[in-house]
Simulated scan of single mutants.
Amino acid sequence: MSLTKASCKTADITIVDNHRPYKACDTWRNKALERISRLQPMLVVVSSSEAGESAKELKDLLQDWAAGYGPVYRRLVGAADHGVVLLDNPWPKNDAVECVSSYPLQLQDCEQDQRDAIKDPTRREANRQGARRASAAVVDPKPWLCPGSGRCPRVVGDTFVYRDESHVVDPYAEALTPVLRQELRKLWMLGG
């Protein structure tokens, strides 16, 4: 079962949309958490993009975002047998499809160094900390999109990786299904 709402964050932090607080996300998050609690699932996998700004000023981005993630993840872990936080995927430095169509014979020109592929390193670390505080497992998809070479390709074989500046295309996501399944099984066998 998928419970999603565009641009909403898993952290209990009101974000901005169209220059206004996006309160609909807060309502959605609470209703999703209530529904998950009623379902008592075996597994909850939660993910959220690193994009988006807080509606109120945060004094310490790392600590404030971690404090926003922690209670949400505690509720999820309390409602399910297993809770997994899937970190945000790496982001291309530009619109991946546009770049590939502009440089079809020099695809390496569209790749970027994996050190530059994380949208918000502070929020990523806050997400990890929130997960740890709630005893949720963390899965990082970065190695699946930016292999050990240090570069993040836009095309693998004959498959695009991204459909725009941040979203992975369905065929590539489907190709990663066995990799995610193996990671989840490994976590289950390790007990968390």
Rank of each mutant, 00 (worst) to 15 (best):
N18V: 13
N127E: 12
S49N: 08
Q63G: 01
Y69A: 04
W144F: 03
D140C: 12
T122D: 00
V77E: 02
Q40G: 06
A32P: 08
L76D: 03
V139C: 06
R181I: 03
V16T: 08
P147K: 09
D88E: 10
A24H: 11
L107N: 09
D17G: 14
A32N: 02
K142M: 15
D164K: 12
Y73V: 06
N30Q: 10
G130L: 09
T122L: 07
E57V: 00
T10I: 07
D116L: 08
R20I: 00
D64K: 04
N18T: 10
R115Q: 08
D109M: 13
R133P: 03
A136Q: 05
G52D: 07
L58N: 05
K56R: 14
W91D: 01
S54I: 04
D60G: 06
H19W: 12
G192S: 13
D140G: 09
W188T: 02
N30W: 13
Y162M: 07
A51I: 05
G78Q: 08
D158E: 11
L62V: 10
T4D: 13
S7C: 08
D60N: 11
S135E: 08
P141C: 06
V100T: 15
R74A: 05
V179Y: 06
L33C: 00
K56D: 09
L87K: 03
W188P: 00
L33Y: 01
G70S: 09
T122E: 00
D158I: 05
D120H: 09
G148T: 06
L43V: 02
H167V: 10
K93C: 11
N30F: 11
E125W: 04
E53K: 15
D158P: 07
I13N: 01
L33A: 07
S2K: 13
R163V: 12
S2N: 13
K59W: 13
K142H: 13
S7E: 14
R151H: 04
P171D: 07
D140M: 05
D113H: 06
T14G: 01
A55L: 10
D81A: 13
D95N: 15
H82M: 15
A32E: 05
Q106F: 11
Q40A: 15
P21Q: 12
Y22P: 12
Y22I: 05
R123F: 11
G83M: 01
T14W: 07
I118W: 07
A79G: 04
V169D: 07
K59T: 10
I118R: 09
Y73E: 02
F160E: 04
